[in-house]
Design a protein around this nucleic acid. Structure first.
Length: 470
RNA sequence: GUCCCUAUCGUCUAGCCCGGCCUAGGACAUCGCCCUUUCAAGGCGGUAACACGGGUUCGAAUCCCGUUGGGGACGCCA
């Protein structure tokens, strides 16, 4: 075990917990658990115009659903504004930061111009050595970046990455409205919270040299960095709404299991030989940055769906029965406040486990365990509920009615005897019964279904089908 | 435009660091067959990749250089 590993997930509450964020949270969590370290949750809400309380709740909801637990936090940067201002003051006093009187509009105009002329888009440093304040202006504070030399990032995933200091901007650390900015607060907090490993998306790799300079100016030890590859959509652009669901909770709504999503996400960028399916314990045990890839990966919904199916198949039926209840309610299959016999439901679930890929699918397939078919599928009725099936169906009904011991095996015997007596194939009677019981041609093994719905229900449905044939 | 990252089947990836065991392995998807009361699940098999060009070497997917492609960053966003 590594000494006192402390990591953090630091989302900004400007949106829901999305797939990329969840993956970052996951890798932090895994590393903390792997090392027996501490996982800190920190809300980076310094952009007060875009951050909302609702999104903070939403992020926490997502973390909880995924079962990524943290030891410390959630901390909020808005609670620590005084702390940051203190650090800023010190830097200004030491001459490591300075007041900048350029307005946001002027800066923007210069940026446009530089862009158009193909010049480097950087702050020109015009307030760097100002002797006097500019009257009538409220200044922001900029960090005085070294102009010479190189800054080296030692990344656990990318190795050594070097940057010319000349290309590092004198970044604003305190806005003119007296609020601190991201690149500054992230450093102050990582120091104050004794973060040992900064694990985040590699879209932050370019910020890292600036932050390293900040650590140096503040006189603090530099943590280890691990920049994870991005997750892209099918068109290889950054994952966004255009690619469908990006909010983690949308996957809950679609009937995905948290463990399946976790398993999928971890394999996006991390691997362990040829293994595809992992328990959380295995993940924690095997996790290491050495097995994290460097290239961005494309989010593949089909594979997630397959994995979800695998998880549903292997889940404990009782657990699955619990999980599917909200979906039964949503589909109107079960009424609000209705008592459901959970051990009976678990039996029904067992028959569908290898058939359903999501909880939504599972719930809707469960419908005929609760209700007689409201209508028959047209094609199914035409093909299986007709004059041809009438006599065998009648015969089967009579055989079933006479059954005292109504079980899977005894039901099967009734079918077998009808089949033998009439010289037909099993399908010639099983399919009509399937339509009678479920309304369609697709279901688990028909003997299992019959046993679970019970003799009375099965006979009632067959009777209805007989009537429907006329 | 500048800087940074990156490059194995359509997709996720193993192999690369420590060149020969690679006729490049696994998984998803896809196609075919088997099993079969339907649908699944499962089994068997097929199609499918080392971006390109130069080196280095007896030998390169593996090392080096370049090109090209892709991604990211360049905010008083995070």
């Amino acid at each position: 075990m590594t000494e006192n590993v402390r990591v953090r997930f630091a989302p900004s509450p400007t949106g829901h917990l999305h797939i990329g964020g969840a993956r970052t949270a996951l890798f932090n969590w895994l590393y903390a658990r792997h090392c027996g370290g501490t996982f800190v949750l920190r809300i980076e809400d310094t952009d007060t115009t875009r951050s909302t309380e609702e999104y903070i709740e939403a992020i926490i909801e997502g973390m909880k659903w995924l079962d990524l637990s943290w030891e410390e936090g959630p901390f909020r940067q808005t609670d620590r504004f005084d702390v940051y201002r203190g650090y800023v003051r010190n830097l200004v006093q030491q001459g490591k930061a300075y007041y900048c009187y350029c307005s946001a509009e002027e800066l923007e105009a210069r940026r446009q111009e530089a862009m158009a002329q193909g010049r480097p888009v950087m702050y020109d440093g015009r307030c760097r050595d100002l002797a006097e304040p500019v009257p009538g202006r409220t200044p922001s504070v900029r960090f005085r970046m070294p102009r010479e030399g190189r800054t080296v990032v030692h990344d656990l995933i990318h190795g050594v990455v070097e940057f010319d200091n000349a290309q590092l901007d004198d970044l604003i650390i305190l806005r003119s409205d007296n609020t601190p900015t991201y690149n500054f607060t992230v450093v102050v907090d990582d120091v104050d919270m004794k973060i040992t490993h900064v694990i985040r998306g590699d879209d932050h790799l370019n910020n890292t040299p600036k932050q390293i300079q900040l650590y140096k100016a503040l006189g603090y030890e530099i943590p280890k960095f691990a920049h994870l590859p991005m997750i892209l959509g099918a068109d290889k652009t950054r994952l966004s709404k255009r690619h469908g669901a990006t909010s983690v909770m949308a996957y809950y709504e679609m009937g995905y299991l948290a463990d399946a999503l976790i398993n999928y996400l971890v394999r996006l960028g991390w691997s362990f030989g040829d293994q595809e399916v992992f328990t959380r314990e295995e993940l924690i045990g095997h996790f290491s940055f050495e097995n994290v890839g460097k290239a961005a990966s494309v989010f593949n919904p089909e594979k997630l769906l397959w994995l979800n199916g695998q998880y549903i198949m292997k889940s404990d039926p009782a657990k699955l029965a619990e999980l599917v209840v909200p979906f039964l309610l949503r589909e109107g299959i079960v009424g609000e406040g209705q008592q459901v016999d959970m051990s009976w439901l678990a039996k029904a679930v067992v028959t569908l486990q290898e058939r359903a890929k999501t909880l939504v699918e599972l719930a809707s397939s469960l419908r005929y365990f609760f209700h007689d078919p409201a209508a028959y599928d047209d094609k199914a009725k035409a093909k299986f509920l007709n004059e041809k099936s009438l006599p065998v169906l009648t015969e089967l009904r009579d055989g079933l009615t006479a059954l005292d011991d109504y079980t899977h095996d005894s039901i099967e015997k009734v079918f077998t005897s009808v089949v033998e007596k009439n010289g037909i194939k099993l399908g010639a009677i099983a399919q009509p019964v399937r339509v009678a019981l479920t309304g369609g041609t697709v279901s688990p093994g028909i003997f299992e279904v019959m046993e679970i719905i019970g003799k009375e229900t099965a006979l009632r449905r067959i009777e209805k089908a007989l009537l429907a044939i006329g």
